[in-house]
Computed example of a mutant assay.
Amino acid sequence: MAFIFKIIDNKDIESVIPLVEKLNNYQISYETLKRRFSEMIAQNNYECAVIYNGERLIGVSGLWYCTRHYSGRSVEPDHVYIDEAYRNKGLGKQFFNWIYNYVKEKGYEAVELNTYVSNAPSHKFYFNEGFKILGFHFLKKL
């Protein structure tokens, strides 16, 4: 299979919403995700990487850019999702290698991320990618 990895144009951002809905078990409405993605793009420190198999969108990862005192210029992959039919075939590794190369060329020196506590398969994947647990992610809804 010939997969295409690329940064999606901001005008096409709605095309990733069905995959992000699946990631969140449809607990966040399409309209809410549409509004949030619009706000995310407007912040100017976000890009969205995707995977296509031909014309079919099969994977997504947001990329948040920032500079942190402890890691320098860093990128945070977010809402990473690959269609179930394409998992466990090395595609996640290919996607992350593409992301590493892409952000390194942009001058970034670190990758850090969060993953849901309940998503054990992702934990194994990220450990295998060389990620280390640095801390805890806390959330308080206001």
Rank of each mutant, 00 (worst) to 15 (best):
Y86F: 13
I51L: 08
F95E: 06
Y116N: 04
F125M: 05
I8Q: 06
N10C: 11
K93I: 13
E109D: 09
I82L: 14
R73S: 01
F136E: 13
Y52T: 12
K22Q: 15
S29M: 06
L19V: 02
K140F: 15
K106N: 01
G90Q: 09
Y116L: 08
T32D: 14
N44P: 13
I4E: 13
R56H: 09
Q43T: 14
A120R: 13
E14M: 10
R35D: 14
W64Y: 15
I7G: 13
E76V: 03
N101R: 10
I51D: 05
K22L: 13
H69V: 15
S38A: 13
C66T: 12
Y126H: 02
K93P: 04
Y102P: 00
S71R: 10
K34V: 07
Y52N: 06
R68A: 08
E31R: 05
H123R: 06
R36I: 09
F37S: 11
P121Q: 13
Y30D: 08
Y108I: 09
I82Y: 00
R73G: 00
G62Y: 04
F95K: 03
R36V: 11
A120P: 00
N128F: 02
G62Q: 04
N119P: 12
P121R: 12
W98F: 07
E47H: 02
I133S: 08
F5K: 09
N88K: 11
T32P: 03
S71Q: 04
P77C: 01
V16L: 08
L23E: 01
Y86M: 12
K141F: 12
N101T: 14
F95L: 11
R36A: 07
K22V: 13
T67Q: 15
V117Y: 14
I41P: 12
M40P: 06
A42R: 13
S29L: 09
L91I: 10
F95S: 01
G59P: 01
E129N: 07
Y100S: 15
P121F: 07
V103I: 09
K140M: 12
I82M: 10
T67V: 15
F131N: 00
P18Y: 00
E112T: 04
E21Q: 15
K132Y: 11
H123P: 03
F136W: 12
H123S: 01
V16N: 03
V117A: 11
C48E: 14
Y126V: 04
Q94Y: 02
I28A: 08
I17G: 08
P18R: 07
N53F: 03
K89P: 03
A85D: 10
A110T: 05
V111F: 00
L23H: 05
G92T: 05
V80I: 14
V60Q: 13
K132D: 04
N101K: 15
N25D: 15
A110S: 11
L23D: 03
E84G: 09
I13W: 05
Y126N: 01
N45P: 07
I4P: 03
E112H: 15
F96R: 06
Y81H: 11
S122E: 04
L63T: 06
I41S: 04
N10S: 15
S122T: 06
F125P: 02
A42F: 10
L113A: 02
F138I: 02
D83S: 14
L23Y: 09
F95V: 05
L134P: 04
A49N: 04
